[in-house]
């Protein structure tokens, strides 16, 4: 077994230091070392998007990133999205639109949607579907998810910009 390395990263606004074996994925570190189990393991090879978090503002499948690669990055997970006692507009839109059934894909979906809406605040349906194609949902048929993201985009447009990009 190769030696463990110390890795430092900002996670949900706090600087964290953790030990990491070279073979450990960022997903394993988040879930097992840092107890951030909101990112889910659905496929282990980057096809389902359930493990999506933001790394330096970009949506990343954490099952495809090694933990040691996270050194020096700024990571935002689903656990850090909601402000205080409320919910982020994307989270609210998912609930209001019944855009989840079993909910296992939801954290990854919401984080992918956040990265996308940060980049494209006013997307068309086609753009949403193209951008979200890497996140699989087996329950909803996507209809309500797409509508939730559309609604979230509208809600975010009505908010001050500082709320939209607080971690970027």
């Amino acid at each position: 077994m190769a030696k463990k390395r110390i890795v430092t990263a900002t996670i949900n606004g706090r600087e964290e230091e953790f030990l990491c074996q070279p073979r450990q994925t960022l997903l394993e570190i988040l879930r097992d070392t840092l107890s951030l189990t909101g990112a889910k393991e659905g496929c282990s090879n980057g096809n389902c998007g359930a493990c999506t978090v933001l790394v330096d503002g970009r949506a990343v499948n954490t099952c495809m990133v090694l933990g040691v690669e996270a050194d020096g990055t700024d990571i935002e997970t689903i656990e850090g999205l909601a402000p205080g006692d409320g919910l982020d507009p994307i989270q609210e839109a998912f609930l209001g639109n019944a855009a989840l059934q079993c909910g296992i894909c939801t954290p990854g979906y919401i984080m992918a949607a956040k990265a996308f809406l940060d980049e494209n605040p006013n997307p068309t349906e086609e753009e949403i579907r193209f951008a979200m194609a890497g996140n699989l949902c087996r329950c909803t048929g996507y209809d309500k998810i797409v509508r939730a993201i559309q609604e979230a985009a509208e809600k975010r447009a009505g908010q001050p910009a500082s709320c939209q990009k607080e971690t970027v």
Binding site: R31, L36, T37, G38, A39, K40, E41, T77, I78, E79, L81, A82, L87, Q91, F94, L95, L100, G103, I104, T106, P107, I110
Partner: peptide
């Protein structure tokens, strides 16, 4: 169970 499921707090099997 909505809030738990959109915040990542809901505990699934592997959690």
């Amino acid at each position: 169970d909505g809030a738990d499921k959109v915040t990542g707090r809901a505990l699934y099997g592997a959690d």
